[in-house]
Design a protein around this nucleic acid. Structure first.
Lengths: 245, 245
DNA sequence: CTAACTAAGACGCAAATCGCATATAAGTCA
DNA sequence: TGACTTATATGCGATTTGCGTCTTAGTTAG
């Protein structure tokens, strides 16, 4: 460690530091498409644009703790799957000052998504429109899914469109070799619901028998013995994740 | 954005910020095993322990630029594959102060690894001993590969053992569905060399015909038409990556 | 009580992929 | 020229995958 670094360590303020924030992609599903929860910015910069909920990181909290705090304070929920996504460190992300942001991905099953939307007045639901297939990558758009003007493109603040795009990319990549999809479902779910999650994230249709086989062979699922209720046709078996949540 | 956040933006220092650094895993191969380049710490804390090269992030440089600067200044090389790994934000990573570190993974082909080792006196080569198979995860050890005491376990500073472990985990995961392995090879290479890279990273032996077939079917490789020289047996075809580096 | 309807779940089979043993090719060297 | 070594090709059984279709278990209409 060089002398400069050493001094910087003992004299905070002598060496200017970027601000550090966490931003959360609150990801759920809406009408079979990936969706997220956004806040409309009231102040400059980017006033009127839509932003991911976020916060500065306090000196005495870990990044994970900061992300969970944002989840509590700005979405009013807790106890859901959350994972670090990527750290965005461009120079002009925020015109006021240098802000480095650690992006997190939070996966909200339907009830949690609805609870956050209902419980936090500022939050709005937006469909994530992904114009590329597979893991090609590229920009995504946010479409309003709220009240009157459904389908309208929402202008996103800062580099939050990039963050959303990366969230989709990451999820698509992990879907097939990990059990993240379960985090978007309630504790008990049917194979069809699981397939719907995969199809919504991947943006493609999947073959049903092949999907069933693969999922059951993975060993991640455990039949509960009970069946879904309220259908007008044959009710499906309910499964649960074998892994602890 | 809350009032507190707003003020923090315009009055740096009113709101304390963590220090922000980048740390680099300089990853290469040595005797068919993954290896990295470490610096022995001269000062407290963790004096005498081995650390990844790193640096504070300046206000006017991106995270990627900071990582490339570390590569230049502390390894004396440039122009190699580098990617962000993960951001470590534990509270007690550094006993002096709160330091959040963005870890980067740099992939050094043999010549770059040797050049860094020879050109930078402080750097030492260490074998990364991975005691778990597949993507199970868990701690890794660093074994000295330098001069006299080859095989000795090197005590690592801070949470750098975790960072090394994550680097291996990430590489193993990406190996099969991306072309990262090429980044550990010279521009022209044989299929056997490519297989050696995979085997070193995965820590397993692979089936040769199956590996050849898969790699050639991927479409990432382009035969150069020329063959390797200097062997005492049949020389292998040289390939290059079809993607731009 | 029965037949129509719907989606769950099972089955069959061809195509693709993979692991592996073995054969052939192309160099060097004695 | 033949031994030697590794590259490269080939063959084949086992496994996985995609996909159409059949059967099953419920509800609803008559």
């Amino acid at each position: 460690m060089s002398e400069t670094d050493f001094l910087a360590g003992y004299d905070p303020g002598a060496y200017p530091r970027p601000s550090l924030t966490v931003d959360l992609v609150l990801l759920g599903l809406r009408d079979g498409r990936p969706a997220t929860l956004l806040l409309k910015r009231a102040q400059q910069p980017h006033a009127g644009r839509w932003a991911l909920p976020g916060s500065f990181v306090a000196l005495d909290e870990t990044l994970d703790a900061a992300a969970e705090r944002v989840l509590r304070e700005k979405a009013g929920i807790s106890g859901i799957h959350i994972e670090q996504l990527y750290t965005f460190g461009g120079l002009d992300r925020d015109p006021r000052m240098r802000v480095v942001s650690v992006a997190y991905l939070a996966l909200l099953p339907e009830p949690a998504f609805a609870e956050a939307l209902a419980g936090m007045p500022g939050l709005s639901a937006a469909i994530i429109a992904v114009p590329w297939s597979g893991e090609a990558g590229g920009p995504v758009a946010a479409l309003s899914a709220d009240g009157r003007r459904t389908g309208e493109t929402l202008p996103l603040a800062f580099d939050h469109a990039d963050i959303l795009a990366l969230a989709i990319l990451r999820l698509r990549g992990k879907l097939d070799y990990s059990d993240v999809a379960f985090a978007l479902l309630p504790e008990h779910f049917t194979l069809r619901q699981l397939q719907d999650v995969h199809e919504a994230i991947l943006g493609t249709r999947l073959n049903k028998p092949a999907f069933r086989r693969r999922m059951l062979d993975r060993g991640w699922l455990e039949p509960t013995g009970s069946r879904e209720a309220g259908t007008s046709f044959r009710p499906a078996e309910l499964y649960r994740s074998r892994n602890p949540r």
